[in-house]
Write a protein that binds this DNA or RNA. Structure first.
Lengths: 258, 258
DNA sequence: GCCGTAAGCAAACACTGTTAACTCCTGCGA
DNA sequence: TCGCAGGAGTTAACAGTGTTTGCTTACGGC
């Protein structure tokens, strides 16, 4: 089952080159902007020529997708770290001391997400910006898979939150039927991913959860994309009150520090 | 005060050409995608050559900005129409019949925004996609001005909603001070734009209003950018329950049809 | 030690935005 | 009505883009 990694040095240096290409491309993208990461610039930086890169990536777009996947994984790792550092945060911030661990984890991850986005706007654009794989539901698209892993990190915490501290939601039949069928399908996916525990989720809870995610995304995206500049010079404090509002919708009491 | 429009036919045909360029560029952008709207393609479509376009736009980017501004204005017009058709909607949809006019207007405009975005994804990307003017707070940037007019349409309705049906909010001093100062500045802008009536707005109301806008944006953007496809095949019904949630935060009772 | 294969390169193609120099036509002022 | 300035539009060219083709070279596995 384990993927055989026999490999003579041939494919070892090859893998190293692939990594270098991605590293250089990412650096250019971050430091000089999206459109500066041209094949010739990357190659030049590496002391080679553009067509050589085609030995490693079939097209510029594929390289781009690889960067997206990698970035997804990097941010997922950052968020996982924030989640696992929740206890430590509890010790530091008095605000969080009295709260259940899973609540603290959710808050820490949400904050880490915003902090990462604020610190890495170019990479946030790369991953969450307009150009979406669209109909590329290839399933084997590594960027899509990485995106799913990213989402799963949030979902896993939410499922634990619900298991430990369920909040009141409307009954299933209060939802529009057209939405209910979609949420049932998605719940089946969750069962697939997280086990039978998810089967007991009320559809209303999923509805609320998705809305929380939409709010978090909207908040961070508008900040990074400067769409809040018309009213706020620094979205940080506004993120705090918004986090409190999102928490409220999930039955969490979170009071931002003043 | 009225801008003198003397103009011999010289500048009349010039204006017509400018309009044609923008129309062709927009059509290409909508039908063939963002990157198909190249100068040569536009010129070819018009029976001329690319350098000729430089008589009308100093660069491709300026043409792009002009399209953004025009699109802002177009969508603003659509939303204004939806707002002004609120009474008619009240007569049609029983759900809205009993509600105050200003509430119906808000619902109609929000729905019209989503509908427009769903029907014009390319144009939505053009305006709300990642590439933001950034630090281009030129003030005389027509795209920025158009964006402000767009936002003002929402804000005007909100101000009337607040005047007629204020909802309970936290007192000003419950907000983090770092946020309060920004909201005070923004309130001053609102007073500038909408008159002294806005001066009485509690900061908490602005906080809630901004969050409602962030939610609406996040919802529509994630839909258009396909970021909801991992859980929803059609975001329409989810938009309804989200609209209800947003309304609730504004003290509005809106029950989506089942 | 050979040899096949992978790596990398130079040249070229079809594009892109943009500039310079030129021609032509036309609407305006006298 | 005429002459002409200036605007409109052209061709040619430059520097850049992603990508393909054919070639050489060097090295790792047999």
């Amino acid at each position: 089952m384990s993927t055989e990694v026999p490999v003579g040095r041939r494919e070892r240096v090859r893998a190293a080159t692939v990594d270098e290409i991605k590293a250089v491309a990412l650096r250019l993208l971050v430091e000089e902007g999206q459109e500066a990461a041209t094949l010739r610039a990357i190659a030049r930086e590496m002391g080679m020529t553009a067509p050589g890169l085609y030995r490693y990536f079939p097209s510029h777009e594929d390289l781009h997708k690889a960067l997206v996947a990698d970035t997804y994984d990097r941010i997922t790792a950052v968020l996982a770290q924030a989640r696992d550092g929740a206890e430590a945060a509890q010790a530091t911030e008095p605000m969080l001391a009295a709260k259940p661990l899973v609540v603290v984890q959710l808050v820490c991850v949400a904050k880490a997400f915003r902090d990462w986005a604020a610190a890495h706007p170019q990479e946030f654009r790369l991953v969450f910006g307009s150009p979406v794989p669209a109909l590329a539901q290839d399933a084997e698209d590594p960027a899509l898979a990485a995106g799913n892993r990213f989402g799963a990190l949030f979902t896993e915490i939410f499922l634990r939150l619900w298991a430990e501290y369920p909040f009141p939601v409307d009954p299933d039949d209060a939802l529009p039927e057209a939405l209910a069928v979609q949420l049932r399908d998605y719940r089946a996916v969750l069962v697939e991913l997280f086990g039978e525990g998810a089967a007991a989720l009320p559809l209303g809870a999923i509805d609320v959860y998705l809305r929380a995610w939409v709010q978090l995304y909207g908040l961070v995206a508008m900040d990074v994309f400067n769409h809040l500049h018309f009213c706020l010079s620094d979205a940080g404090p506004f993120f705090e009150t918004s986090l409190a509002a999102i928490g409220r919708s999930l039955g969490i009491v979170y009071v931002p520090e003043k």
